[in-house]
């Protein structure tokens, strides 16, 4: 059991029942996550966020999940009752959402939310939880935790809000952290700061990180391994350091479509989508 990967997914499908039949958002992907930083990249609609949510079984009807295997640290979570899932979510597996503006409760102070998050998973007293909250705020590089803990979400900036989100997710010491575009709502200068914090925490605590983003270059810099998704399937997977040798035309297209400050071009390359990509079988990203 101990050497089982943190997350083991085989043949995962996310489907939605619609008036015109069943729509497949994720189509049979397989991957594992160890104590590493795994980047999942794709355009909007490629199924990358759905994959992240499916791991926590957060797909609501009319959507549903099918998989041959969905294990967290050797434990099957497909058959876990909803009560067990609630313990798992935020406890052993946490998720950082895209925009702090929409994911923090606007009518509770930062401190109240942090304490609530911790007490939902651990049996600690209120004052102890308050102390832990202060510590974790300090850990995510918030300068004056004593002041920030009594603020309401609208009184903090976007970058600080995202750091508070991270702090909240880290409080119960999760094994797996799922970050769904954690920096796309932030400024470039703040982005790096937030990434550094996530990076440091993941290293120090030995967590597994699933980093979902549409920015291939960012992921290449930040993660150990990359999974590239297109139309609900994995088209390519590689080590981040070997991204330069990527083969798939979709990966190359994504890489070349970014405007580069140092190498100006008259025209940016535009992705030419090949219908064959959609039908190609999914590449396994198991290790």
């Amino acid at each position: 059991m101990t050497d089982a990967p943190l997350l083991d997914v085989e043949n995962l499908w996310v489907k939605f029942r619609t008036r015109t039949g069943v729509f497949d958002a994720v189509r049979g992907i397989s991957f594992t996550l160890g104590k590493e930083r795994l980047g999942i990249v794709g355009e909007s609609g490629s199924g990358k966020s759905m994959t992240g949510r499916a791991v926590l079984r957060l797909i609501r009807p009319p959507g549903f999940i099918e998989a041959d295997r969905l294990n967290v640290h050797g434990e099957d979570i497909l058959s876990l009752p909803e009560k067990g899932m609630r313990k798992l979510r935020g406890g052993r597996v946490s998720m950082i959402m895209q925009d702090p503006k929409f994911s923090l409760n606007p009518v509770m102070t930062v401190g109240q939310q942090l304490v609530e998050a911790l007490r939902a998973h651990e049996n600690v007293s209120r004052s102890q939880a308050h102390k832990r909250a202060l510590e974790v705020l300090d850990e995510v590089a918030i300068r004056d935790p004593q002041r920030v803990i009594d603020l309401y979400p609208h009184e903090v900036s976007g970058g600080m809000g995202q750091r508070i989100m991270i702090a909240m997710m880290l409080l119960p010491n999760p094994e797996i952290l799922i970050a769904d575009e954690p920096t796309s709502a932030l400024d470039v200068s703040v982005q790096l700061q937030v990434l550094d914090i996530i990076d440091k925490l993941v290293r120090d605590r030995g967590m597994g990180l699933m980093f979902i983003s549409h920015d291939l270059n960012l992921v290449a810099k930040f993660c150990d391994r990359i999974v590239i998704m297109y139309a609900g399937r994995i088209v390519e997977t590689c080590k981040a350091s070997e991204l330069r040798n990527a083969q798939h035309p979709y990966t190359l297209g994504l890489l070349n479509s970014v405007p580069d400050l140092e190498r100006p071009r008259d025209h940016l390359e535009v992705l030419k989508r090949d219908p064959a990509w959609r039908d190609a079988p999914s590449v396994s990203a198991r290790q």
Partner: peptide, 14 residues
């Protein structure tokens, strides 16, 4: 917009 779509719009603007 996505990076790939961003490239299309930037080309259009140019």
């Amino acid at each position: 917009l996505d990076v790939s779509v961003q490239a299309e719009i930037l080309n259009l603007l140019v």
